[in-house]
């Protein structure tokens, strides 16, 4: 019963976020600030992770394709793996950890210290100011960070491949994109907007509804990471199914 109540309240929360995000007035300044905090500050994490993932994927791809004498397909295979699934999902999971934990802890601390009540006392719409701006920033940041992860991953694959075969940079990227279609890049990149919405919404819901003092802040932070990750993966399954429905392989 409690689970159903939580799901229902979370659904109402998400619906309110969608409605409030399109209704003026818009909090541009706070949205940009959140975009900086959530997006720009995540670039090092995403770039480093993408580079490392690219190297690992290249090594695994080479080990698999070399058995069939198909080393020439390594750039294309790596690109397809990154663009279609590995890049978006890895970026989403990484950001659910960093952003989800941050939003949950920040809003939870504001709740237990009655800063949200103070904002309400000054006639500021705390939901629009604190939640909608973070959700919009996440929805905007996730595709951009996913693109960054895709390219840093390909670059890592290039570094790993050129250290073995000496493949030129331009030839590697041209071969990488010979197997990628618009149907591979666009849906997979845009689905991360859903990931951003899920991460920010779940974390904001858990943060705003924090109680029990500082202990509740920590619990909200942890629950934000766990819940957003689970929902992200579940949503990914659904989204991939929807993408395949519109763009069959």
């Amino acid at each position: 019963m409690h689970l159903l109540v939580v799901v229902g309240e979370a659904a109402r929360f998400a619906g309110r976020v969608i409605v409030e995000s399109v209704r003026p007035p818009y909090e541009f300044r706070e949205t940009l600030r959140q975009l900086f905090e959530l997006g720009c500050r995540s670039v090092p994490l995403i770039a480093a992770s993408g580079f490392a993932v690219g190297i690992v994927l290249s090594m695994h791809t080479r080990a698999s394709l070399a058995r069939f004498g198909a080393e020439a397909l390594i750039p294309a295979g790596l690109a397809i793996a990154l663009v279609r699934e590995t890049g978006p999902l890895t970026a989403g999971l990484l950001l659910s950890g960093r952003i989800g934990a941050g939003i949950g802890a920040e809003l939870g601390a504001m709740k237990v210290t009655e800063q949200i009540d103070a904002l309400e006392a000054t006639a500021v719409d705390s939901f629009r100011y604190l939640v909608v701006t973070r959700v919009i920033a996440c929805v905007i940041a996730l595709p951009l960070l996913t693109s960054l992860m895709n390219f840093t991953g390909m670059f890592g694959g290039y570094v790993a491949e050129t250290s073995i075969t000496g493949t030129p940079f331009q030839a590697y990227f041209r071969q990488a994109f010979t197997a990628i279609e618009f149907s591979d890049l666009i849906p997979a990149t845009l689905k991360t907007m859903v990931f951003g919405f899920i991460i920010a919404s779940v974390a904001s819901y858990l943060g705003i509804n924090t109680n029990s003092g500082t202990e509740g802040v920590g619990r909200a932070s942890t629950q934000s990471v766990v819940a957003s990750s689970i929902l992200l993966i579940a949503a990914n399954v659904l989204l991939v199914r929807i993408i395949f429905f519109f763009y069959p392989v």
């Binding site: 900086f36 997006g39 663009v83 905007i140 951009l144 693109s147 960054l148 895709n150 390219f151 890049l185």
Partner: peptide, 12 residues
């Protein structure tokens, strides 16, 4: 950040 992200996506 936004421009670079869009540029990478556009490059693809």
């Amino acid at each position: 950040f936004v421009l670079v992200g869009l540029l990478l996506f556009g490059t693809g």
